[in-house]
Amino acid sequence: MEKSRSSDENYNKIIMIFVEEGLLEAAVTTIKEMKQSGLGLSPELYNSVIHGFAKAGKFNDCMLYMKEMEEELGIKADTETFDCLIEAYGNQKMYDEMNHCIKEMESRGCQSDHTTYNLLIQEFARAGLLHKMEKLYLNLPNRRMFLQRSTLIAMIETYAKFGILDKMEKIYHRYLKSVRVLNEDLIRKVATVYIKNHMFSRLEDLGHDLSSKNGGSELVWCLRILCQACQLSKKGTYYVAEEMESLGVPWNPTVTNILALAFMKMKDFKQLNRLLLELPSQHVKPDIITVGILFDACVDGFDGRTVKKVWGNVGFFDSEIEIHTDSLVLAAFGMGYFLKTCERMSISPKTGNKMKQVRTYRHLISLTRTLADVHGYN
């Protein structure tokens, strides 16, 4: 409104703010005001507007402003512009348009760089287009281009999703060398593939990898003790548990439930009883997984009366249903009778979602009473 402030620079800033906030109609209106005032748009502003429309999936508008940029400024779209379009097409799952975009780049004499190739590999990976992903990946050395960390992660996740073990490991080791801190969600996905293939010893390796990069964490101990428990190695399980104790690592529901499941599988009810009775003194609050272990163990001959009495005295059964156990535990051991019953009642042991009327463990146990009578949950 003040003529002294009506400048290319200020208008450019305002339009870029509109684009960043997704207010594209306001951006277009402001562009029209600029033109009416005889002000010019910069190449950076055109790129910003094209990126905004691409992100919103409005590709016709992208093409309109690309054409306008060429006609008014005499500047052709650059690699950055096309990279944005490729990413946007990938987000919209428009893979044919991605290929067309690459051809358009080449026809305009615009060279693909390492950003372009990494974007393409990532989008093909997320789409599960393994052949296209691998073809580009194998071309990178010839073009003297490098893989970004986000690209390595996308490839690992894709191989993990399809259970392609050897290729997953190859890219994982490359990723391991390229980062200072590991992505824990990615480690879980890799670990899940090892579990499905019964390659439990690799879990120990993942634990050491994670420890060397991220330091000690709950996931590190989860992986290490899960490695021993899945192999039903009593000696190995005790060794890791003793190492945790010597280092002063506090107990948590994940490690507690792994130990309890291992003891139950090994029919070591003496150690199971001792473990479950020590939870209150160790300040570990059992979750729905722990409850499932207790009641399933009773089916297998475990006398859980003392544990139930102790838990009842400290008020545990009157607390709200929760889950604090790492997802890898269920991936490794699966669900027993109790958890399967909960799932049938729309109470998910994987997400913690529950029916609104089921609030406490006492209420949950009462609802499973019919099944409990059948299976001996007394």
Rank of each mutant, 00 (worst) to 15 (best):
5 R>H: 03
8 D>S: 08
12 N>V: 04
13 K>V: 04
15 I>C: 05
17 I>K: 11
21 E>Q: 15
23 L>T: 04
30 T>W: 03
32 K>T: 10
34 M>S: 04
37 S>C: 11
40 G>C: 05
43 P>L: 07
50 I>D: 07
51 H>F: 12
51 H>N: 12
54 A>S: 08
55 K>A: 12
56 A>W: 10
58 K>P: 06
60 N>T: 11
61 D>C: 14
61 D>I: 09
63 M>K: 07
70 E>P: 13
70 E>L: 07
71 E>P: 00
71 E>N: 13
73 L>S: 08
76 K>C: 11
76 K>A: 13
77 A>N: 06
82 F>L: 02
84 C>E: 15
86 I>N: 05
89 Y>P: 15
89 Y>F: 12
93 K>P: 00
96 D>W: 02
97 E>K: 09
98 M>P: 04
103 K>A: 11
103 K>M: 07
106 E>R: 13
106 E>I: 10
108 R>I: 02
111 Q>W: 12
112 S>A: 15
116 T>N: 09
118 N>A: 10
118 N>R: 07
118 N>I: 04
122 Q>D: 11
128 G>Q: 07
132 K>Y: 15
136 L>W: 05
137 Y>Q: 06
138 L>S: 14
141 P>S: 04
142 N>P: 03
143 R>I: 04
145 M>T: 00
153 I>F: 00
155 M>N: 03
157 E>M: 12
161 K>H: 10
161 K>W: 00
163 G>P: 14
172 Y>N: 03
176 L>M: 07
178 S>T: 10
186 L>F: 01
186 L>E: 03
188 R>E: 12
193 V>H: 02
194 Y>Q: 04
194 Y>P: 01
202 R>W: 11
215 G>S: 07
215 G>T: 05
216 G>M: 00
222 C>T: 09
225 I>A: 05
227 C>E: 08
230 C>A: 14
232 L>A: 13
233 S>W: 09
234 K>Q: 15
234 K>S: 13
234 K>W: 12
236 G>S: 07
236 G>W: 08
236 G>K: 06
237 T>N: 08
239 Y>Q: 14
241 A>R: 10
244 M>V: 08
245 E>H: 15
254 T>P: 03
255 V>S: 12
259 L>R: 04
262 A>C: 13
265 K>C: 09
265 K>L: 14
265 K>I: 05
267 K>L: 14
267 K>H: 15
272 L>Y: 04
272 L>Q: 14
276 L>N: 06
277 L>N: 06
280 P>K: 13
283 H>V: 01
285 K>S: 12
288 I>W: 02
288 I>V: 12
292 G>N: 09
292 G>R: 06
292 G>C: 10
299 V>T: 09
301 G>K: 00
303 D>R: 11
303 D>V: 10
303 D>W: 04
306 T>K: 10
307 V>F: 08
309 K>I: 05
311 W>E: 06
314 V>Y: 02
316 F>N: 10
319 S>A: 14
322 E>F: 14
330 L>R: 13
336 G>H: 02
337 Y>T: 00
343 E>W: 14
344 R>F: 07
344 R>S: 08
345 M>W: 14
346 S>T: 00
350 K>V: 11
351 T>G: 01
353 N>Y: 12
357 Q>E: 09
358 V>S: 09
359 R>S: 13
368 T>E: 15
371 L>C: 09
374 V>Y: 13
